[in-house]
Amino acid sequence: MARIPLTPKSIFAAAADLADRDGFDAIVVSAVARTLGVQTASLYGHVRDRAAILAGVQELAMGELADVISDEIAGRSGLDALAALGAAQRTYARTSPGRWESLQRRVEPGVERSESTIRVATLTRAVLRGYRLSDDDVVHAARMGGAMVAGFIALERTGAFDHRDQSTEESWRRSVEALDIVFTSWAARSAGSER
């Protein structure tokens, strides 16, 4: 079997696969090298250090997530778009747990926002602008929605909901609907204050 040529892209992909299999903290330079079947020193000709690999995994994951979100929200608006946005993230977290975890970490200070990060933010704003929110409210709505989605996913992954008989899917649906009600009320409040 031919070895994959070493490039930053192949290193980040191997590290992302390792994270999905063994957890995000398993990404260490020596483990990534073993995954690729090379000596650890071989990686340093292509990446600076572990931090560079972690940033590369984060960028790879953000690009994948942007593609998933784009596909899911296309042609939708309002509650349908909001539900699709949340479902895209939840599905991605389930199918790519290590990659998802990379997205829950802060980008290194001083690093410019990547094209993929801008794409995810733009797609999220597009969904929220469907509620006719002010620019300020879009920021607050994105934070609120992001906190709900990330928090729900984190609790679901740790089994925090397993001790109740009620359906987790029903809780998810109600949470998304609650966001829809909040965002709709914000838009109505803003429209009322403009009169």
Rank of each mutant, 00 (worst) to 15 (best):
D17I: 11
D17K: 10
L18D: 06
L18W: 07
L18R: 12
A19F: 08
A19H: 10
A19W: 08
A19T: 08
D20Y: 14
D20H: 14
D20I: 08
D20C: 07
D20M: 05
R21N: 01
R21F: 08
D22R: 14
D22Y: 15
D22W: 12
D22Q: 08
G23F: 01
F24C: 00
F24S: 09
F24E: 07
D25R: 07
A26P: 02
A26C: 04
I27Y: 05
I27G: 08
V28A: 03
V28N: 15
V28M: 05
V29D: 01
V29E: 00
V29Y: 05
S30Q: 04
S30V: 12
A31C: 11
A31F: 06
V32Y: 11
V32W: 12
V32N: 14
A33W: 02
A33F: 02
A33H: 03
A33V: 01
A33G: 03
R34C: 07
R34H: 09
R34A: 13
R34W: 06
R34G: 07
T35V: 11
L36Y: 10
L36Q: 02
G37C: 03
G37I: 01
V38C: 07
V38A: 09
T40Q: 15
T40W: 03
A41F: 01
A41Y: 06
A41M: 04
A41S: 14
S42W: 00
S42F: 00
L43S: 11
L43D: 06
Y44K: 04
Y44R: 05
Y44P: 12
G45S: 12
G45Y: 08
G45N: 07
H46W: 13
H46E: 09
V47R: 11
V47L: 11
V47G: 13
V47D: 10
R48H: 10
R48M: 01
R48E: 13
D49F: 00
D49G: 11
D49C: 06
D49Y: 01
D49H: 07
R50Y: 08
R50M: 02
R50A: 00
R50E: 06
R50G: 00
A51L: 05
A51V: 05
A51S: 12
A51W: 10
A51N: 14
A52G: 08
A52M: 05
A52N: 11
A52W: 04
A52R: 12
